[in-house]
Write a protein that binds this DNA or RNA. Structure first.
Lengths: 337, 337
DNA sequence: CGGGATTCTGTTAGCGCTATCAGTAGCAGA
DNA sequence: TCTGCTACTGATAGCGCTAACAGAATCCCG
């Protein structure tokens, strides 16, 4: 066993093979734990690899074996609490499988999404998990002919490329509206993000308005925002709505953060919640547990979505193409009962 | 120009070359925008690539060119607001450069970090950005001999492998303590995470206690938590401290989320903030803007850290090995002035 | 109008690894 | 002793792409 050659070129299998006196092939086998190698040889090789500080080149390995242990995950944003939790679910399941998630962020921009998908596919991952069902035609086409499992997550109201795991946002909106109406609220306003490409928020609003219409009602006001601290925006928007429509009796927020901001504002104003005014959000974020009063919400099954999607990629799932999850309404303390 | 061959094998340069009647090399040149190609040929090739739906194989390209446009980013967690903002800074700078960040999450586990670093290095990225200065010896060694720029971020109190960009957490803790003492508080408690591997929180506490000691003071109480909703934990811990030490007059939290929880709790209890009791957190998270009263905090320069780190990787920075940033203390409304 | 530059395209030889198959021992059973 | 295994190791041939150079075609200017 020769001493480590300390030249400055990056190490290859060849260096380990030289150092341990066996063929490159045998080193490769040891390092991948594949095929039979005698314990003595194995030890010798590991020792050499360790002292050299050898790190295999997966690029070459992947090219040779036509196998890449990467799973592309394409999501719109990391800064709202929802996707990190999806990631947690994905990691949990992938952890044992040798598969590794690689995250790409699109900022809700379709062109950016297309670019990210292209970039990821060019690394020939073993699977792709993409948020949403709406993509550019080119992106859809690329995914369709990639020849790997594709899972579109979060939403099932639409036509998936391959697999889909998620909830029906339209139905979620409808359910919330029904609960609100059943609780006797009648002058209802909507407060949400001004994001042309947040299709899921849009579908929730659609479902919500459908259910209102069915009950002969319509939104008495709506208010949109974009950017900034969601909590703060929630306060501001709530103030705006209440000054425009003082007798509004329910505020439906497109997400929990602005809802929480609204709730804090109402409390500070001394408005009686949920009697004088009711509130509801969407997502079921953990943050709500810490608020003085629990905001009504609907959990989006984020962890479970991540898990199921990863199971499909890992080949641990059944043959169903679409997995629908059912969010539960958490009435909290902001809808009267 | 032949019609697309619709066999089910994945496309290669060869397919595009066949379809467009030029050599593979020329196709490669067109697709990478490198070298001179006549406009006519270029158009022909692009057309063929487009209709075939060709996606280049970066694995092969990277192996051949010995260049990988990936930057490994290793961070402990995605679920606290701090790292997403660092990511934003990184993406901002990397966006124009052709470099792409790849995120790995360690959950504050050193062994996990070592594994993630190994995995990433095996893809031969162009650079690595790693949170923190504390790593396993093996991880440090791998980074040191990877032959690529390494940037350790967030913290500069220690010995970097290569570059470091961050703030001095020890100093941050000290500064906060000095401000608190100057404001006349004397019975000070600390509330933080029970994470043996959150070295930065630990350093802040050290600095904090040093400054207290210098003023002849010591913490009157300390309370730790792990897991769960930070906001909720903040409430619970605050309640616990106040019941144990009723005359405590300042609460120093290791992060803004638990601080916010504590603040909400104090308000709900009718405790006079900041006269009866003062509060401070750490991080400067956007969320605080939405609270009824602004928590005193210290921003951690997250965006700027991300930007500077990316600039170093992209070769857009000066030669300095360590970049120290200086957080500013934001007294908010929870320290008396 | 010829030498040399310029523009464009093709040929060749790997990048560092793994799949595949071909050995070489060693050993049990006939 | 020979056959037939099993256990182990090595030689060879790519994976799909790009660097580097070589050649062909065109152009420029004195």
């Amino acid at each position: 066993m020769k001493p480590p050659t300390d030249t400055r070129h990056t190490l290859t299998l060849r260096d380990v093979s030289d150092a341990s006196g066996v063929s490159e092939m045998t080193v490769s086998r040891v390092l991948r734990n594949r095929g039979d190698v005698s314990p003595a040889t194995r030890e010798k090789v590991l020792e050499a690899a360790r002292t050299l500080g050898y790190v295999p080149n997966k690029i070459a390995g992947a090219l040779a074996s036509q196998r890449v242990n990467l799973v592309g995950v394409v999501i719109p944003s990391l800064s709202n609490m929802v996707f990190p939790e999806v990631m947690t679910g994905i990691s949990e399941v992938l952890d044992g499988t040798g598969l590794q998630p690689v995250v790409g962020v699109t900022n809700y921009l379709p062109d950016r999404e297309e670019a990210v998908i292209y970039e990821m596919l060019s690394w020939r991952p073993s699977g792709m998990i993409v948020a949403g069902l709406e993509h550019t035609p080119a992106a859809r086409a690329m995914l369709a002919r990639a020849g790997i499992p594709i899972v579109e997550i979060m939403d099932i109201d639409g036509d998936p490329v391959d697999h889909a795991v998620g909830i029906s946002h339209r139905r979620a909106g409808r359910q919330m509206a029904e609960a609100i109406i059943a609780a006797g609220y009648r002058r209802i306003a909507f407060l949400g993000t001004q994001m042309p490409n947040d299709f899921r928020a849009k579908k929730r609003l659609q479902g919500f308005e459908e259910a209102l219409a069915k009950a002969g009602l319509a939104l008495v006001d709506r208010e949109f925002y974009s950017g900034g601290s969601a909590l703060l925006k929630g306060r501001e928007m709530t103030a705006a709505v209440l000054s425009r429509v003082p007798d509004v009796d329910f505020l439906y927020y497109s997400n929990d953060m602005i809802g929480a901001g609204g709730l804090l504002w109402c409390e500070a104003q001394g408005l009686k919640v949920p009697d004088r005014i009711g509130l509801a959000g969407f997502n079921g974020v953990e943050l709500l547990d810490g608020l003085p009063r629990r905001l009504a919400t609907m959990d989006a099954c984020r962890l479970e979505i991540g898990r199921k999607a990863a199971e499909i990629i890992a080949g641990k799932a059944g043959p169903e193409k679409t997995v629908e999850l059912f969010p539960t309404l958490q009435p909290g303390d902001t809808i009267r009962s």
